[in-house]
Each structure stands twice: as structure tokens, then as C-alpha cells.
Design a protein around this nucleic acid. Structure first.
Length: 581
RNA sequence: GCGCCCGUAGCUCAGUUGGAUAGAGCCCCAGCCUUCUAAGCUGGUUGUCGCAGGUUCGACUCCUGCCGGGCGCACCA
């Protein structure tokens, strides 16, 4: 439908150019807006205004030229008007709007999907939490955002792989080993000092107990180095399993798991340093080896090998991103905690060091989650090892509610997450609000079935019965869905889709309440149904609407496609669309 | 001090990448169940878009400078 309108405008532009009325060679892209006021029609274009400066004519003149050069506008439009300074306001014929429903029917699950990405290969890396403890709520937000972005990119024709980077090397993981080792010894009655900055959480004791169950006291006689190493391996394995399980419960699956340690054992890191060295991007200073990040816009150079000879995290991270690039991805997306934002320039420097434009790596930042309960903030202290785990949140509010809340705001702004609200089963809870819209439609179909009323597809019924503004409003909103998906994907901002779904759900609920879809089961009464329509502060005024079989069929077909779009949207967000609640 | 992000209704936040008279939810108030799920609906109040300039047909949106808040500035990850 929008294609037809855009086509009409573009056709007019071409024709005007052939006639010499317009001079611009490459016309800007014709885009359509949805006017806010009914007087502006139901689609508008600013093309005349953008073209005005190029043509050096007034916006109004350009608009007039476009208008005059349209071929048979009456086929598509009821009205086209020019509004100052040069808006083209169009009222599209109702029959064309109705065809949107046929389009959704035809595409079904694929409605909203496009091939704009042209199969570009994208790697989305997210969560990537250290296997040193259970996932906390912040990781949950990152997981929801990462998954939604991956889904959105898939839906827009990208070839997407999702990956989890396991930091199974370096200081933190050693500290894990040392912490578990200390607790392990305590379990055997030894009094040992707990490592400074060690992991305090009580789960460490649990893990230590599992180590003991598994190996008994055999580690006690080994050299400290060795027994710590063993503790680390066992603990890391167990914690990674736990993370996998938590993610599974959260409905998240990764295509690929990538180990940092493998980069070191395979010699990748050394190779990277060699390559960078050859390009004169490394230098030694104060006994350490530095990467010339400042040559690519970072504010300073960065150490890749410490004075003691150990590689820094950055070294393996460069190797990791090099590996991703070598695997042939056109675009790398990293989802990071916002506290790592200072790290972006040096990572993009690494990408550039390998000869790629810096925006081949895009970093999506995820801000922290403030957990609330009934409006009061729950204090968390990671230092003391007390933080709310994702598991607890899933158990309390469910995965759908958690995901929806995580996706309600732009990811780079802090999020207040109220557990009480997320559990609440009412209109105040946006998750239920949207899901209920889907369930409500399903319920309608069940009732129809029980009454022997068919629920037709749009193609199987006369849609011409749909003439109420509420029906057309619903259809117009449905027609927007593909562009919402496209914009969300392009901006890597899933929350836009979340907002759209709330809007669409609201329209469905309103429609449901204002209008009857099936006739009342009347005791000898007519098909006239009562709906509440006009109000003005006073109690609702009842008005009558004749519910004919044709109208019922058309409305059921409409509901079918509204439900389809809600389902498609929730699906992209990784949230279920229940038929019954 | 330098860098990044943010500042929109009492609160929490959107704002279609520069469009027309800036929106939604919550809160508060008043209503709506003999209705296809009230897990719902209807109506009502709210704005110097942090401040000051600039760019242009047009700025919440872009640029500059301030003010205020958050985060980062490791041979940690």
C-alpha cells in the first residue's frame, strides 16, 4: 500500500523531470509520514520541501508540480492537498487500506520481515558474563536486548549468528580458583586467609562443597598452584553450566560459545601481536608492550602485555575481534554493560588496525537495572557478593515479564524494574496488557467457534463492511508495523517495537470494548448490539450498531490480523503470545 | 581536568533520524460488569522540551558555549 503511494509520487517526479519542470538528477528518497491530525489526510510527504532548496523554488511550487504530474491520482487517492509550506497531504482510498489485511494474511508470520539486510553477515555477541558466578539481573537485560537485536536483524534480512564470549582466562578466573580453593580448605578444617578481592558470594561455598564431593581431600596434598588450578577448572565448569541453564530458562540460545582461553592456547594472541608489530603498531615502554590505539582515535595507547609478561584482557580481545573479522562477518555487534563504554574507542582502534572501517564494530550499551519492590529501591552490593540473580527474577516474575520490562526502555538508560508491578495481573502491567490483547483475540475465535460462526481470512470475506474510524485506525496501525521493525533494527533499538505493541494492544482493547464483533446471544431480540461510544464526562451514551453476519465476518478477519501482528512482534522480542490467560 | 551518555507533564519515559498545534503510561479525580475474559474501557488536569546563542522555509531533534546529573579515565575484566 505504502509502496503504491511512494510509487505514485516517484512517478510524478520522473514525469516532471522528463517535462523539464524539475531539474534535480538524483531525487531524495520519498518517505511518508503519518499526519497527527485528521485534516492532514492519512499519509503525508515532505518531499516537496526537501526538494525545494535543490530546485531553488518554493516548496509550494514543487508540491504543485508533483501534484500536476500524478497519473490518475483518483485510482489511489480520495484527495491530495498541498498544505503550507509544502506538505503533500493524501487521503488514500479505503479499499487500499483494507488490502493491508490481505497483505498480512498472505505474509502471515513473515509480515514485517524484509530483505533489506541483503544477507549481510552479522555476529551479535552478548551476555558474555565471566563464568565466576551466576548471572545477575543486569546480564538479564543484556540477554533480552541482545536476543531482540539478533531477532530484529534476522527479520530484516541479515544472516545473524549469536555468540557468547567466555572469559575463561586471566586474573578474574584465577581469583575464582583461589576463592573456591580457600573455601575448600575450610571445609576440611583448615584455617586459611581468604584471597583479597576474592569472590565473596555464598555460591562459592556451594561450589567448594561440590569440589569436595567430587575429589574428596585429594587436593589438600597437592601444591597450592595445582590445587587452585584444579578448583578453578571445576568451578568454572560448574558455573558455566549454571549460566547455560539460566539462559535456557530465560529462553535464550546461542549459536556459538567462544572461549578466551582458546585464543591463548591456539597462539592467536601471539599472532596478533606479531601482525601488529609488523605494521609498527606496537612499541615497548617501561617494560610493557603497547598498542598504538591513539593512531586510530583512541585517547591514549594501551598495554597489551604487562611488564610481568602476562597478556592483558585487551590483547585477547583484539585477537577475538580479529577472529570474528576473519570469520567473514560484515558487521560485529557487541552488547556491553554501559560501564565499559570507555573501552569502545580502543576496540574500534583494533578493528581499524586490521584495515576495517571503525563502524564495522557497533557497540550497544546496556545500562544498569534498579530493582524495585512496590516503588522502593532494593539495594544491591556486588562487593559483598549480594546481588539479585537473574534466576531469582525469573522465578518470581517469569521470563515474559522480565524480558518485556528489560525491553521497555532504551537500553542505554538506567531501568527501574519493579518486581511487584511485573507480577501484577492488571492493565497497569504492560506485559499482560499486550499479551492479553493477543489472548483476547484468541478468545473471540473460540467463542465464534462454539457458536458456529466462521472466522474467515480477509481473502474469504467482504472487507468492505469495515468503515468505522476505529477499524481503519487499527488497519493504519497495522500498516506501520514493517517500518517499525525496520527502524528498530536499523537503530538497534528494540524498545521501539515494545512501544508499538503497547499502542496496538491499546487499540485492540478499545475496539473490543466499544464495538461488538459477534451479535449478542439474544432472547428473541434483534442483532442490534449496544456499544459505548460517545462520552463527555457524563456516563457513556449507548449507541446502536447493527451487527450483520457480514460485519461480524469482516471484524473477525480484522482481529485475526491484529493478532498476527501482535504475535509477530512479541516473537521478535522473544516473548510468548498466549492464547489464554 | 578530559571523554561518553542523559536533562521532555508531579513520577517513569517515548518522540518515526529536520516537519505541521510535543505524546504515552503511572499517580489523582469521576464513571463503566444481566457484554464476545473488568488481566478491560471512557472522560478530566499537566509543559519556558535544562539555559543562551547559531544554522534554515521549519529545531525537542543539527552546531557552539554554559548549568545540572550519571558513568568512564588501570600494566582489572
Amino acid at each position: 500500500m505504502t509502496e503504491k503511494v511512494v510509487g505514485a509520487l516517484e512517478g510524478a517526479l520522473q514525469k516532471a523531470r522528463r517535462k523539464g519542470q524539475l531539474k534535480t538528477k538524483a531525487f531524495p528518497l520519498v518517505t511518508l509520514d503519518l499526519p497527527k491530525r485528521p485534516e492532514w489526510g492519512d499519509l503525508s510527504s515532505t518531499i516537496a520541501m526537501t526538494l525545494a532548496s535543490l530546485e531553488q523554488r518554493s516548496p509550494h511550487d514543487v508540491a504543485q508540480i508533483i501534484l500536476d504530474n500524478m497519473d490518475q491520482p483518483e485510482v489511489i487517492f480520495d484527495r491530495v492537498e498541498i498544505a503550507p509550506p509544502g506538505f503533500l497531504n493524501m487521503t488514500v482510498k479505503r479499499e487500499l487500506w483494507l488490502k493491508v489485511l490481505n497483505e498480512i494474511e498472505k505474509q502471515g508470520h513473515a509480515y514485517g520481515r524484509t530483505d533489506l539486510g541483503k544477507g549481510r553477515r552479522v555476529l551479535v555477541e552478548y551476555v558474555s558474563a565471566n563464568p565466576t558466578g551466576p548471572l545477575h539481573i543486569g546480564h538479564g537485560r543484556g540477554a533480552a536486548v541482545g536476543q531482540a537485536i539478533a531477532n530484529l536483524l534476522k527479520a530484516t534480512g541479515h544472516d545473524v549468528v549469536s555468540e557468547y564470549y567466555i572469559n575463561d582466562s586471566g586474573r578474574q578466573i584465577k581469583l575464582l580458583g583461589a576463592s573456591v580453593h580457600a573455601r575448600y580448605q575450610e571445609l576440611h578444617g583448615r584455617v586459611v586467609p581468604f584471597p583479597e578481592d576474592g569472590y565473596q558470594g555464598s555460591y562459592i561455598e556451594t561450589v567448594a562443597a561440590h569440589v569436595r564431593d567430587r575429589v574428596g581431600s585429594t587436593l589438600l596434598d597437592l601444591p597450592v598452584e595445582q590445587s587452585q588450578q584444579r578448583c578453578q577448572e571445576l568451578a568454572q565448569h560448574e558455573l558455566l553450566d549454571m549460566i547455560r541453564q539460566d539462559l535456557q530458562s530465560f529462553g535464550i540460545e546461542f549459536d556459538s560459545w567462544f572461549s578466551e582461553a582458546s585464543l591463548l592456547s591456539s597462539g592467536s594472541v601471539e599472532q596478533v601481536l606479531e601482525e601488529l608489530g609488523k605494521r609498527d603498531l606496537l612499541f615497548e615502554q617501561d617494560g610493557a608492550l603497547w598498542f598504538r590505539a591513539s593512531a586510530f582515535g583512541d585517547e591514549k595507547d594501551r598495554v597489551v602485555r604487562k611488564r610481568e609478561g602476562e597478556y592483558t584482557y585487551l590483547a585477547s580481545d583484539i585477537a577475538y575481534h580479529r577472529d570474528k573479522l576473519l570469520r567473514g562477518y560484515d558487521l560485529l555487534i557487541d552488547v556491553w554493560g554501559a560501564d565499559h563504554h570507555g573501552y569502545i574507542p580502543r576496540m574500534q582502534a583494533a578493528v581499524q588496525a586490521y584495515g576495517h572501517p571503525k563502524d564495522r564494530l557497533k557497540v550497544v550499551l546496556v545500562q544498569m537495572v534498579n530493582l524495585m519492590r512496590g516503588g522502593r529501591k532494593i539495594e544491591m552490593s556486588k562487593r559483598a557478593g549480594e546481588f539479585t540473580s537473574l534466576r531469582e527474577v525469573i522465578d518470581e516474575v517469569g521470563t515474559d515479564a522480565a524480558k518485556f520490562f528489560f525491553l521497555m526502555r532504551r537500553s542505554d538508560t538506567p531501568l527501574d524494574f519493579d518486581l511487584e508491578l511485573a507480577k501484577q495481573q492488571s492493565a497497569e502491567n504492560p506485559v499482560y496488557y499486550v499479551q492479553y490483547a493477543h489472548a483476547r483475540a484468541a478468545s473471540l475465535f473460540r467463542v465464534a467457534e462454539s457458536r458456529g460462526i466462521p472466522v474467515p481470512q480477509p481473502s474469504e470475506t467482504e472487507l468492505g463492511h469495515l468503515r468505522d474510524p476505529d477499524e481503519l485506525g487499527l488497519i493504519r496501525t497495522l500498516s506501520r508495523y514493517p517500518s517499525v521493525v525496520e527502524a528498530s533494527a536499523a537503530a538497534l533499538e528494540p524498545h521501539r517495537l515494545t512501544f508499538y505493541l503497547q499502542e496496538l494492544a491499546a487499540l485492540l482493547h478499545t475496539f473490543y470494548y466499544k464495538h461488538r464483533i459477534m451479535p449478542l446471544i439474544s432472547q428473541g431480540e434483534s442483532n442490534d448490539a449496544e456499544g459505548f461510544v460517545k462520552v463527555g464526562g457524563a456516563p457513556p451514551v449507548r449507541s446502536r450498531e447493527e451487527i450483520t453476519p457480514g460485519l461480524t465476518a469482516a471484524r473477525l478477519a480484522l482481529m485475526r490480523e491484529v493478532q498476527q501482528v501482535i504475535r509477530n512482534g512479541l516473537d521478535l522480542l522473544g516473548i510468548s503470545a498466549p492464547d489464554r490467560m
